[in-house]
């Protein structure tokens, strides 16, 4: 500084009048680009998601497969037919050689695009209907476990202290076991069947959500608006559900999307291990279990690939699409979180 002021005194500028710029008419039509437009947070997430082609393909496939599962066979609720459409050419359980001129283990043809399995059933019909169990169990399980985990994690994170300590140690204990092994044992104890499978993945499935939620709550709890709400004397329950939960939910949504795929694989895996639905059921995993002996070549040395390829490909396609959606949701939410709109990264 000494250089500039030595003996020369202090500089003062006068006549730089900022108001002049504000008051005058703009000289050109150039305008400062205004930052974020006033659109809602979720609208922006959806806008971003919509631009993600991969995620949209995933969403389409999931929607189509779910619809096919619903409309494959009529749906009856307590003896009442609520959905009369039947897309599948044959009842999935029907043994075809009784009424039709087909034999077991026939490769795919025009009339049976995915072939005939070892019990003389139409594989195409079975694959169409086979998503019913896995897909619906996937959604049901995620809805239940997500809710439980959300509440559990919020309580743990919000109250902290020894409550948090105890609650999280319980989560640690549960997470010490692979979900599939826990589900196997639960099914082995309760027996197979639809609601047993739901229970198998629900009883312990909430633990990961709880841990995620707690982490988010801990982060958000320190935010000023939460502090302010608390300082103003808002009730705990109100603070949690009004201020914390809505902000902590994004990572849970991402996990939930991916979790649907995991549960679908899990249900199929149990079916494959003979622990899921009844052996003859048209469920993707159970079909693979039935088809396992088809791996051993038939009498003529022919390889009966269609029996295992199609049901498994259906699971693969569904789960892959679900993961594509999950990635898309993640990207959409992530960008939202960090405020990086349209950046090339991620």
């Amino acid at each position: 500084m000494t250089k500039t002021t030595d003996g020369r005194g202090r500089i003062q500028i006068t006549g730089f009048d900022a108001d002049e710029v504000k008051e005058r008419e703009p000289l050109s039509d150039w305008q400062e680009t205004s930052g974020g437009e006033a659109v809602g947070r979720w609208t922006r997430v959806w806008e971003r998601f919509k631009r993600n082609r991969t995620a949209l393909i995933g969403l389409t496939i999931v929607a189509v497969m779910s619809l096919l599962a619903i409309f494959a066979r009529p749906v009856e609720v307590m003896g009442l037919t609520v959905q009369p459409i039947s897309l599948a050419p044959y009842p999935p359980e029907e043994i075809l050689w009784i009424r039709h001129d087909v034999s077991q283990n026939t490769p795919p043809s025009w009339s049976h695009p995915m072939g005939i399995d070892g019990e003389a059933r139409d594989v195409f019909s079975r694959v169409l209907a086979g998503g019913r169990y896995s897909i619906s169990i996937g959604f049901v399980v995620v809805a239940i476990t997500g809710t439980i985990g959300l509440v559990y994690g919020s309580i743990s994170g919000y109250f902290g202290g020894w409550i948090d300590e105890v609650m999280m140690r319980i989560v640690d204990m549960i997470l010490a076991f692979p979900a599939l092994i826990l589900a196997m044992i639960i099914v082995s104890m309760f027996g197979g069947g639809y609601w047993q499978l739901v229970a198998a993945f629900t009883i312990f499935g909430w633990a990961t959500y709880a841990r995620l939620m707690r982490g988010e709550v801990l982060k958000i709890k320190e935010n000023e608006y939460v502090m302010a709400a608390k300082a103003l004397g808002a009730r705990d329950r109100l603070v949690i559900f009004r201020h914390i939960v809505p902000n902590a939910v994004p990572p849970l949504i991402v996990y939930a999307t991916l979790q649907i795929g995991t549960v679908v694989i899990g249900v199929a895996a149990l079916g494959f291990l003979g622990l899921g639905m009844d052996p003859g059921t048209a469920e993707w995993g159970t079909m693979l279990e039935n088809g396992r002996n088809a791996i051993i070549p038939g009498p003529g040395g022919d390889i009966r690939w269609w029996i295992t390829v199609f049901p498994g490909a259906a699971i693969f396609l569904f789960v892959m699409s679900m993961n594509m959606i999950g990635d898309g949701v993640n990207d959409a939410l992530d960008a939202q979180e960090t405020g990086v709109a349209g950046g090339g990264d991620k």
Binding site: I11, T14, G15
Partner: peptide
């Protein structure tokens, strides 16, 4: 229309 003045006030030099 700006002006640069160098004030050489000895009181706060």
């Amino acid at each position: 229309g700006y002006e640069v003045t160098v004030r050489d006030s000895s009181d706060d030099a």
